[in-house]
Simulated assay, not measured.
Amino acid sequence: MKPQKSKVIYYLVWLVIGGLLIYLGNSISSYYSEEAKKTFRIGSTVWILAIVPLIYGLHLAFLEGLPKAFKLNWPLLLPVFLPCFLLLIYPILVMYINSLANVTIYKLATLPQASAVFGIVSGLTLIRSMDLIQRKLWNENHKKLTQTILDPAKHQNAVELFLQQHRLLHSSRMSHSPSATLEDELVKDLQEETFRQYPVTAPDTKNSIIWHMWHMTRIEDMTMSVLVNNDVQVLHSGQWNKKLHIDDVHSGNEMTEAEIANLSSTLDIDSLFAYRIEVGRNTREIISRLLPGDFKQKVEAARIHELKEQYAVKEEAAWLLEYWGNKTIAGLVLMPATRHIFLHLNKSIRLKHKIQKSTL
Protein backbone atom coordinates (compact mmCIF):
# COMPACT_ATOMS: atom_id res chain seq x y z
CA MET A 1 0.00 0.00 0.00
CA LYS A 2 1.22 3.50 -0.85
CA PRO A 3 2.50 5.69 2.00
CA GLN A 4 0.53 8.86 2.75
CA LYS A 5 2.21 11.90 1.18
CA SER A 6 1.45 14.09 4.20
CA LYS A 7 3.04 11.54 6.55
CA VAL A 8 6.15 11.27 4.37
CA ILE A 9 6.53 15.07 4.46
CA TYR A 10 6.01 15.07 8.24
CA TYR A 11 8.71 12.45 8.74
CA LEU A 12 11.14 14.32 6.49
CA VAL A 13 10.55 17.57 8.39
CA TRP A 14 10.91 15.69 11.67
CA LEU A 15 14.21 14.21 10.48
CA VAL A 16 15.58 17.60 9.38
CA ILE A 17 14.65 19.21 12.69
CA GLY A 18 16.20 16.27 14.52
CA GLY A 19 19.46 16.73 12.61
CA LEU A 20 19.51 20.44 13.45
CA LEU A 21 18.85 19.71 17.12
CA ILE A 22 21.70 17.21 17.24
CA TYR A 23 24.06 19.70 15.56
CA LEU A 24 23.07 22.55 17.88
CA GLY A 25 23.09 20.33 20.95
CA ASN A 26 26.55 19.02 20.20
CA SER A 27 27.88 22.52 19.48
CA ILE A 28 26.45 24.01 22.67
CA SER A 29 27.63 21.08 24.81
CA SER A 30 31.14 21.30 23.37
CA TYR A 31 31.28 25.06 23.93
CA TYR A 32 30.31 24.87 27.60
CA SER A 33 32.60 21.91 28.22
CA GLU A 34 35.54 23.90 26.88
CA GLU A 35 34.53 26.89 28.99
CA ALA A 36 34.37 24.71 32.08
CA LYS A 37 37.95 23.55 31.46
CA LYS A 38 39.11 27.15 31.27
CA THR A 39 37.15 28.64 34.18
CA PHE A 40 36.69 25.54 36.38
CA ARG A 41 33.02 26.44 36.67
CA ILE A 42 30.81 23.49 35.82
CA GLY A 43 27.40 24.91 36.65
CA SER A 44 26.43 25.80 33.07
CA THR A 45 27.77 22.48 31.79
CA VAL A 46 25.65 20.52 34.26
CA TRP A 47 22.57 22.41 33.11
CA ILE A 48 23.35 21.84 29.43
CA LEU A 49 23.97 18.12 29.98
CA ALA A 50 20.43 17.88 31.33
CA ILE A 51 18.62 20.22 28.93
CA VAL A 52 20.02 18.95 25.61
CA PRO A 53 19.01 15.26 25.98
CA LEU A 54 15.65 16.33 27.41
CA ILE A 55 14.99 18.26 24.19
CA TYR A 56 16.09 15.21 22.18
CA GLY A 57 13.53 13.12 24.05
CA LEU A 58 10.78 15.68 23.49
CA HIS A 59 11.51 15.67 19.77
CA LEU A 60 11.57 11.87 19.65
CA ALA A 61 8.08 11.81 21.21
CA PHE A 62 6.71 13.72 18.21
CA LEU A 63 7.82 11.07 15.69
CA GLU A 64 4.26 9.72 15.39
CA GLY A 65 2.53 13.08 15.62
CA LEU A 66 1.24 15.39 18.34
CA PRO A 67 -0.42 14.14 21.53
CA LYS A 68 -4.09 13.39 20.97
CA ALA A 69 -5.18 14.74 24.34
CA PHE A 70 -3.57 16.64 27.17
CA LYS A 71 -4.72 14.39 29.97
CA LEU A 72 -2.10 12.74 32.10
CA ASN A 73 -1.40 9.04 31.71
CA TRP A 74 -0.35 8.40 35.31
CA PRO A 75 0.96 4.82 34.85
CA LEU A 76 3.56 6.24 32.46
CA LEU A 77 4.19 9.53 34.27
CA LEU A 78 4.85 8.26 37.79
CA PRO A 79 6.86 5.01 37.38
CA VAL A 80 8.90 6.07 34.34
CA PHE A 81 9.06 9.83 33.78
CA LEU A 82 9.36 10.97 37.39
CA PRO A 83 12.32 8.74 38.46
CA CYS A 84 14.22 9.46 35.23
CA PHE A 85 13.60 13.19 35.50
CA LEU A 86 14.71 13.30 39.15
CA LEU A 87 17.91 11.45 38.28
CA LEU A 88 18.44 13.82 35.35
CA ILE A 89 18.21 16.97 37.49
CA TYR A 90 19.82 15.50 40.62
CA PRO A 91 23.31 16.93 39.85
CA ILE A 92 21.67 20.35 39.35
CA LEU A 93 19.77 20.14 42.63
CA VAL A 94 22.92 19.18 44.54
CA MET A 95 24.66 22.34 43.29
CA TYR A 96 22.04 24.46 45.05
CA ILE A 97 20.93 22.21 47.93
CA ASN A 98 23.91 20.54 49.54
CA SER A 99 21.71 18.62 51.97
CA LEU A 100 20.47 16.51 49.05
CA ALA A 101 23.93 15.13 48.40
CA ASN A 102 23.96 11.34 48.37
CA VAL A 103 27.01 9.50 47.09
CA THR A 104 25.10 6.47 45.74
CA ILE A 105 22.49 8.47 43.86
CA TYR A 106 25.11 10.94 42.62
CA LYS A 107 27.22 8.13 41.20
CA LEU A 108 24.19 6.71 39.38
CA ALA A 109 23.13 10.10 38.04
CA THR A 110 26.63 10.94 36.78
CA LEU A 111 27.53 7.65 35.11
CA PRO A 112 28.87 8.06 31.54
CA GLN A 113 25.93 8.79 29.22
CA ALA A 114 23.51 8.70 32.19
CA SER A 115 22.27 12.23 31.56
CA ALA A 116 21.71 11.36 27.90
CA VAL A 117 19.62 8.29 28.75
CA PHE A 118 17.65 9.92 31.57
CA GLY A 119 17.10 13.08 29.50
CA ILE A 120 15.82 11.28 26.40
CA VAL A 121 13.55 8.99 28.42
CA SER A 122 12.24 11.96 30.43
CA GLY A 123 11.39 14.00 27.35
CA LEU A 124 9.82 11.06 25.54
CA THR A 125 7.65 9.89 28.45
CA LEU A 126 6.65 13.44 29.43
CA ILE A 127 4.91 13.91 26.08
CA ARG A 128 3.55 10.38 25.89
CA SER A 129 2.17 10.62 29.43
CA MET A 130 -0.05 13.43 28.12
CA ASP A 131 -1.21 11.29 25.22
CA LEU A 132 -4.47 9.80 26.47
CA ILE A 133 -5.39 6.48 24.94
CA GLN A 134 -7.32 7.46 21.84
CA ARG A 135 -10.17 5.01 22.28
CA LYS A 136 -10.86 6.10 25.85
CA LEU A 137 -10.97 9.75 24.85
CA TRP A 138 -13.25 8.97 21.92
CA ASN A 139 -15.73 7.15 24.14
CA GLU A 140 -15.78 10.00 26.64
CA ASN A 141 -16.48 12.53 23.91
CA HIS A 142 -19.16 10.34 22.34
CA LYS A 143 -21.03 10.39 25.64
CA LYS A 144 -20.81 14.20 25.62
CA LEU A 145 -22.10 14.27 22.04
CA THR A 146 -25.04 12.05 22.99
CA GLN A 147 -25.93 14.42 25.82
CA THR A 148 -25.81 17.61 23.74
CA ILE A 149 -26.85 16.70 20.19
CA LEU A 150 -30.62 17.13 20.71
CA ASP A 151 -30.32 20.52 22.40
CA PRO A 152 -30.78 23.26 19.73
CA ALA A 153 -29.06 25.74 22.05
CA LYS A 154 -25.91 23.60 21.92
CA HIS A 155 -26.15 22.84 18.20
CA GLN A 156 -22.81 24.38 17.20
CA ASN A 157 -21.01 22.67 20.06
CA ALA A 158 -22.50 19.35 18.97
CA VAL A 159 -21.42 19.89 15.36
CA GLU A 160 -17.87 20.78 16.40
CA LEU A 161 -17.66 17.77 18.70
CA PHE A 162 -18.97 15.53 15.93
CA LEU A 163 -16.33 16.83 13.52
CA GLN A 164 -13.67 16.13 16.14
CA GLN A 165 -14.97 12.60 16.72
CA HIS A 166 -15.42 11.90 13.02
CA ARG A 167 -11.89 13.05 12.19
CA LEU A 168 -10.43 10.25 14.31
CA LEU A 169 -12.40 7.62 12.36
CA HIS A 170 -10.90 8.35 8.95
CA SER A 171 -7.45 8.72 7.48
CA SER A 172 -5.63 11.86 8.63
CA ARG A 173 -5.58 12.81 4.92
CA MET A 174 -9.36 13.12 4.93
CA SER A 175 -9.39 16.09 7.33
CA HIS A 176 -5.69 17.04 7.14
CA SER A 177 -5.40 16.04 10.79
CA PRO A 178 -1.99 16.72 12.40
CA SER A 179 -2.45 13.70 14.66
CA ALA A 180 -2.65 10.02 13.79
CA THR A 181 -6.19 8.59 13.67
CA LEU A 182 -7.65 5.17 14.34
CA GLU A 183 -7.66 4.43 10.63
CA ASP A 184 -3.99 5.46 10.47
CA GLU A 185 -3.31 3.01 13.28
CA LEU A 186 -5.06 0.27 11.34
CA VAL A 187 -3.29 0.92 8.04
CA LYS A 188 0.18 1.36 9.54
CA ASP A 189 2.29 -1.72 8.69
CA LEU A 190 -0.85 -3.51 7.46
CA GLN A 191 0.14 -6.18 4.96
CA GLU A 192 -2.08 -6.72 1.92
CA GLU A 193 -2.35 -10.42 2.71
CA THR A 194 -3.64 -9.52 6.17
CA PHE A 195 -6.01 -6.92 4.72
CA ARG A 196 -7.63 -9.46 2.37
CA GLN A 197 -7.52 -12.60 4.52
CA TYR A 198 -10.87 -14.41 4.66
CA PRO A 199 -12.11 -16.10 6.68
CA VAL A 200 -10.41 -14.91 9.87
CA THR A 201 -10.51 -16.61 13.23
CA ALA A 202 -12.03 -14.34 15.87
CA PRO A 203 -14.82 -14.62 18.46
CA ASP A 204 -16.94 -11.84 16.94
CA THR A 205 -16.27 -12.01 13.19
CA LYS A 206 -14.82 -14.09 10.40
CA ASN A 207 -14.97 -11.34 7.80
CA SER A 208 -11.84 -9.80 6.29
CA ILE A 209 -10.50 -6.41 7.34
CA ILE A 210 -11.10 -5.07 3.84
CA TRP A 211 -14.75 -6.12 4.12
CA HIS A 212 -15.09 -4.24 7.42
CA MET A 213 -13.60 -1.09 5.90
CA TRP A 214 -15.82 -1.31 2.81
CA HIS A 215 -18.95 -2.08 4.87
CA MET A 216 -18.58 0.81 7.31
CA THR A 217 -17.92 3.20 4.41
CA ARG A 218 -21.01 2.05 2.52
CA ILE A 219 -23.15 2.49 5.63
CA GLU A 220 -21.83 6.01 6.20
CA ASP A 221 -22.31 6.94 2.54
CA MET A 222 -25.92 5.82 2.21
CA THR A 223 -27.14 7.11 5.58
CA MET A 224 -25.49 10.53 5.34
CA SER A 225 -25.94 11.15 1.60
CA VAL A 226 -29.51 9.90 1.24
CA LEU A 227 -31.19 9.71 4.65
CA VAL A 228 -29.73 12.94 6.05
CA ASN A 229 -28.99 15.00 2.94
CA ASN A 230 -31.56 13.59 0.47
CA ASP A 231 -28.91 13.49 -2.22
CA VAL A 232 -27.01 11.01 -4.41
CA GLN A 233 -24.62 8.57 -2.77
CA VAL A 234 -20.91 9.27 -3.27
CA LEU A 235 -20.64 5.71 -4.62
CA HIS A 236 -22.88 6.63 -7.55
CA SER A 237 -21.90 10.26 -8.15
CA GLY A 238 -18.23 9.29 -8.37
CA GLN A 239 -18.80 5.97 -10.18
CA TRP A 240 -16.72 4.32 -7.50
CA ASN A 241 -17.94 0.81 -8.29
CA LYS A 242 -15.84 0.76 -11.45
CA LYS A 243 -12.79 1.99 -9.53
CA LEU A 244 -13.37 -0.47 -6.68
CA HIS A 245 -13.69 -3.37 -9.17
CA ILE A 246 -16.89 -4.68 -7.60
CA ASP A 247 -20.54 -4.85 -8.66
CA ASP A 248 -22.09 -4.75 -5.19
CA VAL A 249 -23.89 -1.53 -4.30
CA HIS A 250 -25.41 -2.72 -1.02
CA SER A 251 -24.25 -2.30 2.57
CA GLY A 252 -22.57 -5.70 2.91
CA ASN A 253 -25.04 -7.02 5.48
CA GLU A 254 -26.18 -10.63 5.01
CA MET A 255 -23.59 -11.43 2.33
CA THR A 256 -22.83 -15.08 1.66
CA GLU A 257 -19.40 -16.54 2.34
CA ALA A 258 -18.73 -16.78 -1.40
CA GLU A 259 -19.65 -13.11 -1.88
CA ILE A 260 -17.40 -11.97 0.95
CA ALA A 261 -14.53 -14.12 -0.33
CA ASN A 262 -14.88 -12.60 -3.80
CA LEU A 263 -15.05 -9.03 -2.49
CA SER A 264 -12.04 -9.62 -0.22
CA SER A 265 -9.88 -10.82 -3.10
CA THR A 266 -10.93 -8.36 -5.83
CA LEU A 267 -11.71 -5.00 -4.20
CA ASP A 268 -9.11 -2.37 -5.17
CA ILE A 269 -7.35 -1.16 -2.03
CA ASP A 270 -6.18 2.27 -3.18
CA SER A 271 -9.64 3.05 -4.54
CA LEU A 272 -11.21 2.00 -1.25
CA PHE A 273 -9.02 4.46 0.64
CA ALA A 274 -9.88 7.20 -1.85
CA TYR A 275 -13.60 6.38 -1.63
CA ARG A 276 -13.44 6.59 2.17
CA ILE A 277 -11.87 10.04 1.96
CA GLU A 278 -14.64 11.28 -0.34
CA VAL A 279 -17.35 9.82 1.88
CA GLY A 280 -15.77 11.30 5.01
CA ARG A 281 -15.51 14.77 3.51
CA ASN A 282 -19.06 14.57 2.22
CA THR A 283 -20.32 13.66 5.69
CA ARG A 284 -18.52 16.61 7.27
CA GLU A 285 -20.02 19.02 4.75
CA ILE A 286 -23.52 17.63 5.35
CA ILE A 287 -23.36 17.85 9.14
CA SER A 288 -21.77 21.30 9.04
CA ARG A 289 -24.75 22.62 7.05
CA LEU A 290 -27.41 21.38 9.48
CA LEU A 291 -29.38 24.00 11.38
CA PRO A 292 -30.40 24.05 15.07
CA GLY A 293 -33.25 21.60 15.54
CA ASP A 294 -32.37 19.46 12.50
CA PHE A 295 -30.90 16.70 14.66
CA LYS A 296 -34.38 16.11 16.13
CA GLN A 297 -36.00 15.42 12.76
CA LYS A 298 -37.20 11.90 12.03
CA VAL A 299 -35.81 10.07 9.01
CA GLU A 300 -38.29 10.53 6.17
CA ALA A 301 -40.01 7.40 4.85
CA ALA A 302 -39.46 8.57 1.25
CA ARG A 303 -35.72 8.49 1.78
CA ILE A 304 -35.87 4.98 3.20
CA HIS A 305 -37.82 3.99 0.09
CA GLU A 306 -35.15 5.62 -2.07
CA LEU A 307 -32.47 3.41 -0.54
CA LYS A 308 -34.65 0.38 -1.18
CA GLU A 309 -35.02 1.38 -4.81
CA GLN A 310 -31.25 1.74 -5.09
CA TYR A 311 -30.72 -1.79 -3.74
CA ALA A 312 -28.67 -0.24 -0.94
CA VAL A 313 -29.40 -3.27 1.22
CA LYS A 314 -29.96 -6.88 0.24
CA GLU A 315 -33.47 -8.32 0.61
CA GLU A 316 -32.22 -10.44 3.48
CA ALA A 317 -31.13 -7.24 5.26
CA ALA A 318 -34.43 -5.36 4.93
CA TRP A 319 -34.47 -5.11 8.73
CA LEU A 320 -31.72 -2.49 8.42
CA LEU A 321 -34.01 -0.08 6.55
CA GLU A 322 -36.68 -0.55 9.20
CA TYR A 323 -34.09 0.15 11.90
CA TRP A 324 -32.99 3.39 10.22
CA GLY A 325 -36.60 4.39 9.60
CA ASN A 326 -37.16 4.57 13.35
CA LYS A 327 -34.21 6.90 13.90
CA THR A 328 -33.82 10.66 14.07
CA ILE A 329 -30.99 12.45 12.27
CA ALA A 330 -29.21 12.48 15.64
CA GLY A 331 -29.55 8.71 15.84
CA LEU A 332 -27.88 8.32 12.44
CA VAL A 333 -25.08 10.65 13.47
CA LEU A 334 -24.49 8.82 16.74
CA MET A 335 -24.37 5.37 15.13
CA PRO A 336 -23.74 4.96 11.36
CA ALA A 337 -21.54 8.09 11.13
CA THR A 338 -19.55 7.54 14.33
CA ARG A 339 -19.89 4.58 16.69
CA HIS A 340 -20.50 2.05 13.91
CA ILE A 341 -17.20 3.06 12.29
CA PHE A 342 -15.46 3.11 15.67
CA LEU A 343 -16.54 -0.46 16.43
CA HIS A 344 -15.44 -1.80 13.05
CA LEU A 345 -12.08 -0.01 13.20
CA ASN A 346 -11.35 -1.42 16.65
CA LYS A 347 -12.34 -4.88 15.49
CA SER A 348 -10.10 -4.54 12.43
CA ILE A 349 -7.14 -3.34 14.49
CA ARG A 350 -7.47 -6.38 16.76
CA LEU A 351 -7.63 -8.64 13.70
CA LYS A 352 -4.51 -7.04 12.23
CA HIS A 353 -2.50 -7.58 15.40
CA LYS A 354 -3.72 -11.14 15.77
CA ILE A 355 -3.05 -12.18 12.16
CA GLN A 356 0.34 -10.51 11.77
CA LYS A 357 1.50 -11.65 15.19
CA SER A 358 0.75 -15.25 14.24
CA THR A 359 2.86 -14.94 11.09
CA LEU A 360 6.01 -13.76 12.88
Rank of each mutant, 00 (worst) to 15 (best):
S265W: 04
N139R: 07
P178M: 11
G325F: 12
A180T: 13
L321F: 12
L168P: 00
V249D: 01
S44R: 12
P152W: 09
I89Q: 01
Y323T: 07
L72I: 10
Q191W: 04
Q134M: 14
T217N: 15
S27E: 08
I219L: 04
N141F: 03
A101M: 13
N253M: 01
L244M: 09
L15D: 03
P79M: 03
K68E: 12
G65T: 14
S264Q: 08
G123R: 02
A337D: 02
Q197V: 02
E34N: 15
K68Y: 07
I329S: 00
K206W: 05
L82F: 13
E34P: 00
N262S: 08
V234D: 00
P292Q: 10
I89E: 00
S348Q: 06
F118V: 01
I22G: 03
A258Y: 04
F62R: 06
N346T: 06
D294M: 05
V200D: 06
W211F: 14
H215R: 03
P112A: 07
N102E: 05
V279P: 02
L169R: 07
L15P: 00
N262H: 06
P83M: 06
L227E: 07
I269N: 08
Q310D: 11
I42K: 08
K327G: 04
G25T: 07
L100V: 00
P75T: 08
L111W: 10
S122Y: 07
T283K: 03
A158M: 08
A317K: 07
D221H: 05
E185D: 10
F118I: 01
V121A: 00
A258S: 10
K298I: 14
I246L: 11
E322F: 12
R173M: 14
I287T: 01
I127W: 02
T146G: 03
I269F: 13
Y56A: 03
I133K: 14
N326C: 10
S225G: 08
T110G: 07
H166D: 13
A69Q: 11
W74H: 07
G252R: 04
N139D: 11
L321G: 15
L334F: 09
H245F: 12
V228H: 03
L20R: 05
L163W: 02
